[in-house]
Amino acid sequence: SEEEIREAFRVFDKDGNGYISAADLRHVMTNLGEKLTDEEVDEMIREADIDGDGQVNYEDFVQMMTA
């Protein structure tokens, strides 16, 4: 549901600035027990970053979650 997606976005957007940065993503993945290299984190950001601004905004996140 849209509310679940919004809630998930809030979990990833640690600093609440409306964007998921590589640092935000790394933090959440580490908490989930996933040890990722910087390259892996950057690749995840690139794949999710639809508009190419280097971070994942809510619209990018929705597209990723509903793809």
Rank of each mutant, 00 (worst) to 15 (best):
M65Y: 06
Q55N: 14
T37M: 05
M29H: 01
R10S: 05
R26T: 04
K35L: 10
G18F: 02
L32K: 03
K35G: 12
D53F: 11
E40I: 13
V41C: 03
Q55H: 10
F12S: 01
D13N: 01
L36T: 04
L25Y: 02
R26C: 03
S21Q: 06
K35N: 11
I20Q: 00
E43K: 15
D49V: 12
N17S: 12
G52P: 13
T66P: 02
I45A: 04
T30Y: 13
S21K: 06
E7I: 05
A8E: 03
R46E: 05
D60T: 15
M64A: 07
E2H: 09
A22I: 15
E39Q: 10
V62H: 03
Q55A: 06
M29P: 00
G18S: 03
M65V: 05
T66H: 10
D42E: 13
F12E: 01
V62N: 01
N57E: 06
E4S: 09
S1K: 12
H27N: 10
E4T: 09
F12K: 03
L32A: 03
G54K: 04
N57Y: 15
F61H: 00
A8W: 10
V28H: 01
E3T: 09
A48L: 14
M65F: 08
Q63D: 05
D49I: 12
G52A: 13
G52M: 10
E39K: 12
G52N: 09
F9K: 00
Y58G: 01
H27F: 13
D60Q: 14
V62L: 15
D53A: 11
K35Y: 11
D42R: 07
E7S: 10
R6C: 05
Y19D: 01
Y19N: 03
H27K: 13
T30P: 01
G18L: 02
V11K: 13
M44W: 12
F61A: 02
E7R: 12
N31A: 14
E3L: 09
D60Y: 15
M64Q: 07
R46H: 06
L36S: 03
E4G: 08
Y58E: 06
H27A: 11
R46Y: 06
S1W: 14
Y19P: 00
T66E: 04
Y19A: 03
V28F: 03
R10A: 07
L32T: 03
Q63N: 09
E59I: 06
E3Y: 13
D49Q: 14
Y19R: 11
E4H: 09
E43S: 14
S21M: 08
L25F: 13
V41H: 04
M29R: 01
A22S: 07
D60L: 15
E4Y: 12
M29L: 15
M64K: 14
D42T: 10
M29V: 06
F61D: 00
V11Q: 11
Y58C: 02
N31I: 15
V11G: 04
D51E: 08
K14M: 09
D13K: 00
D38M: 12
I20P: 00
I50F: 07
D13G: 01
E4C: 14
G16S: 06
D49A: 11
R46C: 06
T30M: 14
G33T: 10
D24R: 03
E59C: 05
N31P: 01
I5F: 08
E43Q: 14
G16H: 07
V11N: 07
D42P: 01
D24I: 07
A22F: 13
G18C: 02
I5V: 07
V11H: 09
E47T: 14
S1T: 13
G16M: 06
M65A: 03
F9W: 05
R6T: 03
A67E: 08
F9A: 02
A22V: 15
G54V: 04
G33P: 07
I45H: 02
D38E: 12
E34R: 15
K35C: 12
D15E: 12
I45E: 01
R10T: 03
E3R: 10
T66A: 12
G16I: 02
F12R: 03
A67P: 05
K14R: 12
D49T: 13
M29E: 00
V41Q: 03
T66G: 08
D60K: 15
